[in-house]
Design a protein around this nucleic acid. Structure first.
Length: 314
DNA sequence: CGAGTCCTGTGT
DNA sequence: ACACAGGACTCG
């Protein structure tokens, strides 16, 4: 569910609530539950070193949270361990499709899909991790930026010359490229479609074939979309809420995402949906013509069209 | 590149 | 019953 604007909103909300706090206790309500033969937590805790989810809880219990950051779609909690001489770890959280991190005023699980409850040394504050589909992932990193540096630049930080250079090196379709975290980190299905609409570029256009002007429109389209989305607190469609449990409202400003068949807000043409990179892709066939692939018919018609038919086609 | 996989929930 | 959902990995 959460893409860059949602994760940024969560980080901004949680930062003042958890920075400087100590983790008094870590509970894993689903650790004992049976799911496909083993603990339902095994997947979220993808580290092989956590034979037992209790080891994870033990590892972070007593640690102090010294900072909260965003890296693409991932949240990073910097921890100072209790016993070591300033030993540190970074708890990496990827929320997948349905992950939530929220501050609650109770240590009781709010849902059967709550998988972690951290008690913080602040009266009335518990940090809950909830994830219905369990596509989320946690890692505990030794190095603050380890295992994370292979991703592409942050779209809000990259400069245009660098962006244009990266673009030129890619052969894939724009939609696939924007979803690729090794190209840019942070975009997902919503903001890829919304960015391409603002850039007026066809999602199936080939990256390497864009001229400088089109590359500029894409760059600007991405940044404007993300800036507006962050300002709106992200998009809440089914599951997303921020760290305080509040919904975002950028979904009301979506131009194309999940608007199949509705009129384009700019030209009135019906929004179309197609599948690219196995993902739903929404676009306006009139506003987003630039760079669209030429469709050559595989079979040539055996008979020429009659003049009357030609008229109809033209 | 596409297809399948991991999951649960919702809407037709 | 089926399609689809904000992500990302592996396979051929």
């Amino acid at each position: 569910m959460p893409e860059l604007p949602e994760v940024e909103t969560i980080v901004r909300g949680l930062r003042p609530l958890v920075t400087g706090r100590r983790i008094l206790d870590a509970e894993l309500p689903s650790a004992g539950a049976k799911g496909s033969g083993s603990s339902v937590l095994r997947r979220i805790l993808r580290e092989p070193e956590w034979q037992n989810p209790g080891d994870f809880a033990r590892a972070i219990r007593g640690a102090s949270i010294t900072g909260v950051r965003r890296h693409g779609k991932q949240l990073l909690f910097d921890l100072r361990l209790p016993n070591g001489q300033g030993a540190t770890r970074t708890w990496l959280v990827h929320l997948g499709m349905t992950g939530r991190l929220t501050c609650e005023n109770t240590p009781e699980a709010r849902s059967p899909h709550t998988h972690l409850i951290l008690s913080l040394d602040h009266p009335g504050r518990w940090l809950h991790y909830t994830d219905i589909r369990r596509f989320g992932r946690w890692q505990l990193l030794d190095v603050p930026d380890g295992a994370v540096c292979s991703l592409g630049p942050d779209p809000m930080e990259v400069g245009f010359p660098e962006f244009a250079r990266l673009l030129r090196a890619r052969r894939s379709m724009l939609k696939s490229l924007l979803l690729d975290q090794h190209f840019l980190r942070g975009l997902g299905n919503i903001y890829a479609d919304e960015s391409l609409f603002r850039a007026r570029l066809h999602p199936a256009a080939l990256a390497a074939r864009l001229d400088r002007k089109q590359a500029r429109k894409l760059y600007d389209g991405i940044r404007k979309t993300l800036r507006l989305a962050i300002a709106a607190g992200g998009s809440s469609i089914a599951n997303y809420v921020d760290g305080l449990g509040n919904a975002g409202y950028f979904q009301h400003e979506h131009q194309v995402y999940q608007r199949t068949g509705d009129p384009c807000l700019r030209c009135g043409t019906r929004i179309r949906r197609m599948i690219i990179a196995s993902r739903s892709t929404h676009f306006c066939p009139r506003c987003q013509r630039a760079g669209r692939p030429v469709h050559r018919p595989v079979h040539r018609p055996v008979h020429r069209a009659t003049p009357l038919l030609r008229k109809g086609i033209a």
